[in-house]
Amino acid sequence: MLDIRLVKRLGATEIDCAFEARGPVTALFGPSGAGKTSVLSMIAGLIKPDSGHIRLDGDILFDAAARVDIAVHRRRIGYVFQDGRLLPHLSVASNLDYGRWMNGLGRNAERMNQVAELLGIGHLLKRRPGALSGGERQRVAIGRALLSEPRLLLLDEPLASLDAALKAEILPYLLRLKQQAGMPMVYVSHVASEVEMLADTVIRIENGRTLAPA
């Protein structure tokens, strides 16, 4: 379970959010510019909140009062960015393996095949990121995050940068991911239909503030 209270001033906007996510899939839903991505970045540890706390399954990842701030690379939180962000100098296979290397996890061919099959990226392994379509890139990014064996997966509008046809291509993979991967997820989106399809809990965010559940 994710338990969050975050306050952060970013330029002119102030983020002041509090919610509990019991998953499996929690959606952060709200208009563009509401501060959803900033909230994800704070959960991942990429932005430091001014005050508040982040607890995951009872572990404190951040607590301003207790001066706890676990480093990004120790949080074991997977992050799928809007724009994929594959490492351009590595092959698809190496991108997928990256989290395993960095976390010192043993080679697990079965898991690799399972994820590759789930996301339909088995035939791309030898390619380089520059030779992938937008949809393929995004699927590899999801696979890469999954294979780092995170405790929680953050997905930041993974469909936003794709056109309608590609969205339709990826949505089924996300549904399968939810059904088969069994990993708690926080899914950020401003599209109601995506959220309805995927989320068990919906947290609405507007102007940096969480609203009462609808």
Binding site: H73, R74, R85, G99, N103, S148
Partner: peptide, 9 residues
Amino acid sequence: ETASTLGAS
């Protein structure tokens, strides 16, 4: 940043 979310110090 992406690399650090994947566990890289």
